[in-house]
Design a protein around this nucleic acid. Sequence first.
DNA 1: TTGTAGGCGTTATCAT
DNA 2: ATGATAACGCCTACAA
Lengths: 348, 348
Amino acid sequence: MSSKRSRGDAAGIATIRDVARLAGVSIATVSRTLHSPALVREETREQVLRIVAESGYAPNLLARSLRRHEAGAILVMVRDITNPFYPEIFLGVEGAARALGFNVLIGNTGDDPARERDYLQLVHTRRADGMIVVTGKLPESWPDPSRRPIAAVIACEPIAGVELPIVQIDNEAAAADMVRHLIALGHRRIAHITGPLDQIIAQQRLAGWRRALRDAGLSADEALVARGDFRLPSGVAAAKTLLAGRRHPTAIFASNDESAIGAIQAIHEAGLSVPADISVAGFDDILFAAAAFPPLTTIRQPRRQLGEQAMTLLHGLLAGRPDKPHAKPARIVLPTELVRRQSTAPVS
Amino acid sequence: MSSKRSRGDAAGIATIRDVARLAGVSIATVSRTLHSPALVREETREQVLRIVAESGYAPNLLARSLRRHEAGAILVMVRDITNPFYPEIFLGVEGAARALGFNVLIGNTGDDPARERDYLQLVHTRRADGMIVVTGKLPESWPDPSRRPIAAVIACEPIAGVELPIVQIDNEAAAADMVRHLIALGHRRIAHITGPLDQIIAQQRLAGWRRALRDAGLSADEALVARGDFRLPSGVAAAKTLLAGRRHPTAIFASNDESAIGAIQAIHEAGLSVPADISVAGFDDILFAAAAFPPLTTIRQPRRQLGEQAMTLLHGLLAGRPDKPHAKPARIVLPTELVRRQSTAPVS
DNA sequence: TTGTAGGCGTTATCAT
DNA sequence: ATGATAACGCCTACAA
């Protein structure tokens, strides 16, 4: 800021220019040495590399990004990072991103439209090249015809009426699997604790419950459906409601692990035992499903792979022709696995 | 790329230049309208703002950052984002960062030196203005005298011999608190399951255990110390070891919640009951501490605030004189809270 | 094999 | 109140 070019002192060497000067070559040669070493004479190259090493030169990625029209970063937009379901998705995204040369920006929206808008803006302002949407909804201001289209991929939570590349599981099939598992154990009164039914995945899991029951010739008694919101307390409340009925269910299939754990708590509080009196099953296989008491039977989602694949898809979007006209967006469905633990048992 | 200036078609308007042209003013005026509206005549301003709105113009933040010598982003370096302890720290960082105009990059190191180095590099390459280190260690290549110093703040996990601003809790005091709680319940044989003892916080919690026992005139019997690594299985193993001794402890203080939950599992498997036979206490108050069976008595860390304060500190570093000579780095210690739940009870 | 120079989109300085 | 214009640091035709 002060003197024109008295840098190179204690502060270390900053720019490609300094390296060029010290190596006695042009800026272009330094750049080439770094990017296309084959084009540079060996002697020159060594000289440049030596200066680079000695000086600790690090390229300014902002300048590079500006020049190259790519931010080198992507954004993951998520509702609530403290929800134990999401971090492993991040892990997958981050691993793939790293391999592809991208950094990952975290966007925690808390379901707040203002924050969703702001994070979307990161792509418009070129701080991110694209985004992975795990919020199950589109920001209000999108799509915006007055702006260029955004590279985006949906992960885990489909969005109604939106055609974007997506990586997900088959929620309905997995839920039906679980219900079949309970039926196979002899259960006939199988309740379901739903998620928030404005979320598609909650609808799908409920549909899976219905389908499996009907396919088995059982009635999908709506009195056995209790609404929840995927959070633990809602599982407690829902289970209490279900237990209050005259003939309580012999099994409860909760739409995710948190509410299943809540249900278990409520059952314990009612002086009943899991699985002796009531079997309980969850969905997701979050870390603590295995640590619950009793360990929870659940559906394992390949979360890490979901994240990896989402990043891969996004990269494809970014690398491909941006205006590929009407190619149908990719849709990847990853397999789930029913994990049998001690919370489900044959009906007694 | 192709034609010189035929943009402004379907793709929408990209640059401040386009806005200037459409508004019939100079680039400088557009910039002023956006940053110092007071300097612009009202008519002009309105005209410019109208074009901005119509065109959906969004400034290129990469260009801005390049010009302003600031990335507008910070990096949070963490060992393992799937560890339920960390996401809430992110939440705090992210909230504060948002308020301060920064974006948050996530750096999951998995304890891998190569990844630590790469993430550190993000600051050198100007993609991040500074970093918050939650890994409990410095990347190998840091500090590097040949490069300019890095703005960094430590959160939660102190690093031996490193003088950087830090936000943390008093681990030793909190651990001692918990042990005193157990002593007050009448326990005399109180075991401790440690964390990995190369981590300072694990050492401090162990020290707190020792101190509280000695202060109470009890012996800190080293046979009651079982090594763990903060993960659940290590809690299982450690508890098994402790139960194998001739006179098993009446209480186990685990150095974090995960290992405490593991200990509870082991106790259950041994046919004993918590807290009737053995009381168990944890540390951290992660989400599932309350959902454990029985709900876990633990030490609550103000994780979100830890994150917020870390970001605040980092911002201070960034905003302040970069070369402030020997000001002693800030050190913030946040209060903890002992949360009594059902896993601890008076000795029987 | 190497150097020159234009430009990426902004911001900020200096004129006008 | 507004307009030229020079950086910011890098990449890449195009020349030499």
